[in-house]
């Protein structure tokens, strides 16, 4: 059965890299499990599925990963049919709502410069109305997509693709 990483790296069942990944069955299982827990949780803590996909699209864009961006753009389109969030992610119209701007700013900060994060950055998110659950979910999401993009880079390298 193919999972999200197989799809993103275009690995066919039975191919060498597909099989190589299966030398680590727990890793495969919990990577897909992490993807599910982050993008389609049972309890989202107030951070909506659309916001999650939009945040992930922003990270993929910052990391200049075309395939990963297309993946999250497609997920977002299903959840954000008017394209409102998509436009803010790709540098267009700003939503005047402080909450989404605070989320997007945090995504940029943590992706590009986690070392300069401060307590006030978390205070800003809480003040913007995110629950502790939503703050942690957002943090796990940013971490996961940064992890995912690097695993993908390694798989492409092993496959012999740029």
């Amino acid at each position: 059965m193919t999972d999200v990483m197989d799809t993103l790296a275009n690995l066919q069942p039975g191919s060498p890299l597909f099989e190589l990944r299966r030398e680590r069955p727990d890793l495969v299982k919990h990577l897909q499990g992490s993807d599910d827990a982050i993008f389609t949780p049972t309890d989202d803590g107030g951070l909506t599925s659309a916001e999650r996909s939009a945040a992930a699209l922003r990270i993929a864009t910052l990391l200049r990963d075309g395939m990963l961006s297309a993946h999250y753009r497609a997920r977002l389109a299903a959840l954000d049919p008017d394209g409102t969030l998509a436009r803010t992610v790709e540098g267009g119209a700003r939503i005047t709502e402080g909450r989404w701007d605070a989320i997007l700013a945090h995504v940029d900060l943590v992706t590009r410069g986690p070392g300069i994060a401060e307590r006030k950055d978390i205070d800003n998110l809480l003040a913007a109305g995110l629950s502790s659950h939503a703050v942690v979910s957002l943090s796990q999401l940013i971490g996961y997509v940064n992890f995912q993009a690097r695993v993908l880079a390694g798989l492409r390298m092993l496959k012999g693709e740029a």
Partner: peptide, 17 residues
Amino acid sequence: LAHDPEALGERSPLYNA
């Protein structure tokens, strides 16, 4: 991390693997 138990429940075994 336990404020988001679903993510924690997957990330911990992923990290261990």
